[in-house]
């Protein structure tokens, strides 16, 4: 008989997502930027993005996604909150305690972490740590960003790339052999390349697209290979590759390098753009709800972002309440 306290794996038991209601099409962007729908789609694969108005905040999106994830988990409470974002509503205090309190969780450990678009994977590793260190038996992780606030309003090369959104996941204490157990989390960073994606403040984003492309492909490809090897699988075992949604050209290049067929690659960048730390849980939530992602499938998550940061992790998708 196993004592539940002996189980130190973190297992997915809930997932949720939130998008602002306002959708901005390429056609709308073309009315104020010197660009075309064809230019945006051919270089990025993006047609639409959701954007918050003045009436909605990063914390609002986080709460909405978290409520959905907690409902799926059938949980009224968790024992820790990890919130990954690069675009908090204010620089101090962190968003996580406020979000926790709005969810009725006042008192639990709650932290923000910033790791660019890799934030959710860093959040997963942090949540695994909370569980294995016995700080918590259940952890809520939220990836949330309003990346539409970062580019200069008239920057035709970066404005079309970004959207706003949130994704959330509940992890419980469990066993490594359980479906939904988080595998070894591979993470990395390279601060010598910080200038490739940087914003001193909202409205000032600067990005060196070609170099970002090169690093994104290299880093995600090698992180994926490490994560798959660490769990003892081979790339052919992967049923679903879930890459951070930054640009369809990057994800298809990574998939080709990994020799994962297109039919096994999940994506939503065409409809939501790059939603930063929200990207992976948002894609997981949408794919689980429309059956592109099913219980028992072997899944490989990978991300790359400002920092630079990158990461990858494997898991077997669990049966979740709908």
């Amino acid at each position: 008989m196993h004592n539940p306290g002996d189980a130190t794996a973190a297992v997915i038991c809930g997932i949720g997502a939130a998008l602002p209601s306002r959708v901005v099409s390429n056609a709308e962007l073309c009315t104020r930027l010197d660009t075309t729908d064809e230019w945006i789609r051919s270089r990025t694969g993006i047609s639409f993005r959701h954007v918050t108005g003045a009436d909605s905040s990063t914390e609002d999106l986080a709460v909405q996604a978290a409520e959905q994830a907690l409902a799926v988990a059938g949980a009224t409470s968790v024992e820790a909150v990890v919130l990954a974002t690069t675009t908090p509503d204010r620089c101090c205090p962190a968003a996580a305690p406020a979000v926790a309190s709005r969810l009725g969780l006042t008192g639990v450990p709650a932290i923000d972490l910033a790791a660019g678009c890799t934030g959710f994977l860093y959040g997963l590793a942090t949540a695994v740590g909370f569980i294995s260190s016995r700080t918590a038996n259940a952890v809520l992780i939220i990836g949330v960003d309003r990346l539409s606030t970062l580019p200069a309003r008239d920057d035709r090369t970066t404005v079309p790339l970004f959207g706003d959104g949130a994704g959330a996941m509940v992890l419980r204490r469990g066993r490594l052999e359980d479906d939904g157990a988080i595998g070894p989390v591979v993470l990395g960073s390279d601060g010598t390349q910080a200038e490739l994606i940087q914003a001193a403040h909202p409205g000032s984003l600067q990005m060196q697209g070609a170099e970002v492309f090169r690093h994104a492909v290299d880093r995600m490809t090698s992180a994926c290979a490490q994560a798959v090897a660490a769990v003892g699988w081979c790339m052919n075992d992967i049923d679903r590759l879930v890459p951070h949604q930054a640009n369809a050209r990057i994800t298809s290049f990574v998939a080709r390098q990994l020799e994962v067929p297109d039919s096994r690659v999940l994506g939503n960048v065409d409809l939501v753009g790059n939603t930063g730390a929200a990207s992976i849980p948002l894609l997981l939530a949408q794919s689980a709800s429309d059956d592109r992602l099913q219980a028992g499938q072997r899944v490989l998550l990978t991300a790359f972002g400002a920092g630079l940061t990158w990461g990858a992790v494997t898991l077997t998708w669990p049966e979740l309440a709908s």
Binding site: S42, R43, G209, A210, F213, R214, V217, R249, F253, Q257
Partner: peptide
């Protein structure tokens, strides 16, 4: 060719 295709070609020639 667009700007990304040039990077893609460079990566593929190497690999």
């Amino acid at each position: 060719f667009d700007s990304l295709a040039i990077v893609e070609l460079s990566l593929l020639l190497g690999d």
